[in-house]
């Protein structure tokens, strides 16, 4: 069994790592990571705008975003992927590669989800910061930009990292629209071998495990550091556990 697994890794590591890259589109693990990183990078600014809109006092801004958040929370990601697969080519009128379709879906989905994380971070800071900022002569947006967001986003770094982990896990769903990612590469390997599906998918699971576990571990380390910092204990060793900042995380 173990020798089978090693043989598969030995024969197909390049395909699993970068897909058929020089001769075809970039795929494999590299594409999975690029797709997740791009989604988070694009979803992040959107999520801040959405969070501000949801905290706005104007219903015109608040309502559409609330609906968007509830739709993304209540509808399976798979269904949203099918929607983009159908709508994105229709709206742009172009033959869109599945990578872009998946990216669009993930940006909308994670943008809506991250907006809840950012909103929680802003609300957790309390009203005092805003009041103080206003009293010092900042405008509403000025207080947000220079006082609230820097603190809120700093406290939210662990949650953002754990959203990154769930994005990596979500990219696997690209399999249904043939996004050339790691899962796709593994199923290609499986189709070539035909006789060792268990070994192939075990390798797939292990690779995901290693990546997501390390990122989750990093998120927890960061969380502890940030908690200590907020308590004003940077550099102090403490046995007692301080009330932790909550990692808001989603499952996929």
């Amino acid at each position: 069994m173990i020798s089978d697994i090693l043989a598969i890794i030995h024969d197909y590591w390049l395909l699993l790592l970068i897909g058929q890259y020089p001769n075809g589109p970039l795929g494999g693990l590299a594409n999975t990571l690029i797709l997740s990183a791009l989604s988070i990078a694009l979803a992040f600014p959107i999520s801040i705008v959405l969070a501000l809109a949801r905290l706005s006092k104007w219903p015109m801004l608040r309502w559409p975003v609330t609906v968007l958040v509830y739709v993304t929370r209540g509808v399976p990601l798979l269904m949203l992927i099918l929607w983009s697969y159908f709508l994105v080519p229709l709206l742009t009128g172009a033959n869109v590669p599945s990578f872009i379709t998946m990216l669009t879906t993930l940006v909308v989905y994670q943008g809506a989800f991250l907006s809840e994380v950012v909103r929680a971070g802003i609300v957790a800071l309390g009203n005092g910061q805003m009041d103080a900022g206003r009293a010092l002569g900042h405008s509403y947006l000025g207080t947000m930009r220079y006082i609230i967001l820097p603190q809120a986003l700093y406290n939210m770094i662990p949650s953002i990292l754990s959203t990154f982990v769930s994005t990596i896990k979500d990219t696997t769903l690209g399999y249904v629209i043939n996004v050339p990612d790691l899962t796709f590469a593994a199923s290609q390997v499986n189709n070539q071998l035909l006789t060792q599906p268990f070994q192939v998918f075990l390798i797939l699971a292990l690779v995901y495990y290693v990546i997501c576990w390390s990122l989750t571990y990093a998120a927890h380390r960061l969380e502890r550091r940030i908690t200590r910092r907020r308590a004003g204990l940077a550099g102090v060793r403490l046995a007692a556990v301080i009330a932790p900042t909550k990692i808001v995380s989603e499952q996929s």
Binding site: F198, Q199, F201
Partner: peptide, 23 residues
């Protein structure tokens, strides 16, 4: 807990249906 939280649910399903099923 660590395995089931860090491996994508889809991959777990594939491992069960395409992998363990055949064994």
């Amino acid at each position: 807990v660590s395995y089931h939280r860090n491996v994508p649910t889809l991959v777990q399903l594939m491992l069960w249906y395409f992998g363990i099923f055949t064994l």
